[in-house]
């Protein structure tokens, strides 16, 4: 599900140097430990994440360890630039779009919409994948879509966020053709195909295809309150 790379090469090389020198591994910020000033900022950040026992030893909801979850894949790496001071450059944007297209799995045949009522619940739910001092148990409650965190979808029902675009009347403005459904499925599943380095998560793998069909119904079904604003 998560297409992770191994730890950055610089860190791997660095770790082997530390081992060769016989340095202690734990608590990498000690004087008798590694020399943090000999690393680039990027190397030190990776070192702090992976070599200083900074995380609880827990199994992630998607399987795997903290190490798996904290290891960046290629899209995460490419999008880790200072977005407050730099625009995404065209070359990186192209690479990210290509990576996203490669990751995306299109559904077979025509796309059917689910139940917009279930989609509304999923859009509101911020449950799922949180771990640490308080663990979301997917066995007792399904993960949600977190949509309201960032998008206004139906401003009559709840307080909704503004990090992403307002989606009120989304389907009313665009219709409900197969082409639109395919596009919406692509954006929910892996939005980097159209918006490289967007802040939005890639929901393919986080939500089931059935859950995605409900959220799509919430956006596109003419009966959905989203389309009657």
């Amino acid at each position: 599900m998560f297409n992770k790379n191994t730890v950055a090469a610089g860190v791997a090389a660095f770790a082997s140097v530390a081992l060769a020198a016989g340095c202690a591994v734990a608590d990498g910020n000690k004087a008798d430990d590694v020399d943090i000033t000999a690393m680039s900022a990027e190397e030190l950040a990776e070192h702090l994440i992976f070599e200083t026992n900074s995380w609880r030893d827990q199994e992630m909801q998607e399987g795997g360890t903290w190490r798996d979850r904290m290891t960046q894949d290629d899209i995460q790496k490419a999008c880790s630039f200072d977005s407050t001071r730099n625009d995404l450059d065209g070359e990186t944007a192209g690479q990210v779009v290509a990576l996203a297209r490669e990751q995306y799995e299109a559904p077979e045949g025509d796309i059917e919409l689910g139940d917009w009522r279930k989609g509304a619940e999923l859009a509101d739910s911020g449950y799922g994948y949180r771990i640490g001092h308080n663990v979301d148990d997917h066995g007792t409650r399904e993960a949600g879509g977190n949509c309201y965190n960032c998008h206004v979808m139906d401003s009559s029902v709840s307080v909704q966020g503004t990090i992403g675009p307002n989606l009120e009347n989304y389907g009313a403005q665009r219709g409900d053709s197969q082409e639109i459904r395919q596009y919406v499925h692509q954006v929910i599943s892996n939005p980097h195909q159209y918006f490289p380095c967007t802040q939005m998560p890639r929901f393919q793998g986080l939500l089931t295809e059935e859950q995605i069909s409900h959220i799509m119904a919430y956006l596109l079904d003419p009966e959905s309150p989203v389309n009657n604003r």
Binding site: T37, L48, E62, Q76, S80, P201, R202
Partner: peptide, 23 residues
């Protein structure tokens, strides 16, 4: 070094939902 690493961490996208602090 720690301040500069903190800056990298602030913009480092990761986790199950690809977020960084700057999101």
């Amino acid at each position: 070094a720690m301040r500069d690493a903190g800056e990298v961490l602030f913009f480092r996208r990761g986790g199950a939902m690809d977020f960084n602090c700057a999101a």
